[in-house]
């Protein structure tokens, strides 16, 4: 494959340009993930052949089509159990689950809940563009209350999910919220997540100018990007209570949880070794 860009060595360049609409934040996120991986691989803390991607269905999950790694584009909402299946039998793998807010927080809600409860050794990156993009702009669990979507034409009557609080409450080792408007910080969060045992969860505020932007009157990529940037509040070491997720008050980004409890895989191995007469 031909190489131009410094990240091309991690990309299936023959699949570029990506399928995403102009100005979609997902490509920015993919760049951050690949740069974070590049740092890990260069410093020797990750082996390239041990990196695997898994995504469900949706624009965000399509991110699995481009990285030049082992990669799985599976079914809607089910990337987490797929990735965990890989991880259990090949613990040396670093499994990165990428999905949208619908994929991870709606249809995949049960799986993220239990993956976090287990502190399963996965890096879960939830791209949150506050809308169902691929299917044409329907309401998501992350859609701000009151906003128009194609399935809530009189305004979204539902409360938004603050998944940071969920992930923190259920005991993930690492919980952060980043934004594609703040790329060095986002890259750093993903870099850190890649080094964690247990479950590392990164919610990423992203932009969908084509649908979400159209719904709220910021149709051009730059307008939506600029609008989101205005509403992002960067905090250093914010508490979980400070993790505001609000169109009006703003979206607080930062690292909310960083702990180092044993991950599911090592506990499972320890318990399993009892069966084989190990110390356990």
């Amino acid at each position: 494959m031909a190489v131009a860009h410094p990240l091309d060595r991690y990309l299936r360049t023959d699949r570029l340009p990506t399928m995403w609409c102009p100005g979609c934040g997902l490509g920015i996120l993919l760049g951050c993930i690949l740069r974070a991986l590049d740092r890990r691989i260069r410093e020797g803390s990750l082996r390239r052949e041990n990196v695997g991607f898994a995504g469900g269905i949706g624009c965000s999950a399509r991110m699995t089509l481009y990285p030049y790694f082992d990669s799985a584009h599976v079914i809607h909402g089910r990337a987490i159990p797929f990735a965990l299946g890989v991880k259990i039998v090949k613990p040396e793998m670093k499994m990165i689950v990428v999905g949208g807010d619908g994929d991870i927080a709606a249809i995949g809600g049960n799986h993220i809940l239990h993956a976090i409860r287990r502190n399963a050794d996965l890096v879960v990156i939830m791209a949150n563009n506050m809308i169902y993009g691929m299917t044409g702009g329907q309401q998501a669990p992350t859609t701000p209350r009151g906003l128009y979507t194609t399935t809530t034409p009189y305004g979204n009557p539902e409360r938004e999910i603050n998944i940071v609080k969920l992930a923190a409450a259920l005991g993930a080792n690492y919980v952060a919220r980043g934004s594609v408007t703040h790329t060095p910080l986002l890259e750093q969060m993903i870099y850190k997540a890649l080094g964690k045992r247990g479950l590392a969860f990164v919610e990423v505020l992203s932009t969908c100018p084509e649908l979400f932007g159209r719904h709220i009157g910021f149709r051009s990529p730059v307008d939506l990007y600029s609008e989101l940037r205005k509403r992002v509040v960067v905090k250093t070491r914010p508490s979980v209570e400070e993790s505001d997720y609000s169109w009006e008050r703003g979206f607080v980004i930062g690292e909310f949880v960083d702990r180092d409890e044993p991950g599911f895989i090592e506990v499972l191995q320890e318990y399993t070794s009892r069966a084989r007469g190990g110390a356990g």
Partner: peptide, 23 residues
Amino acid sequence: YVVQFEDEIASINAAIGASWACA
């Protein structure tokens, strides 16, 4: 390895994942 998952959906998807890890 034997793991109890949160539902049958997770179980089959995990089994598919494990198969792609050669198990």
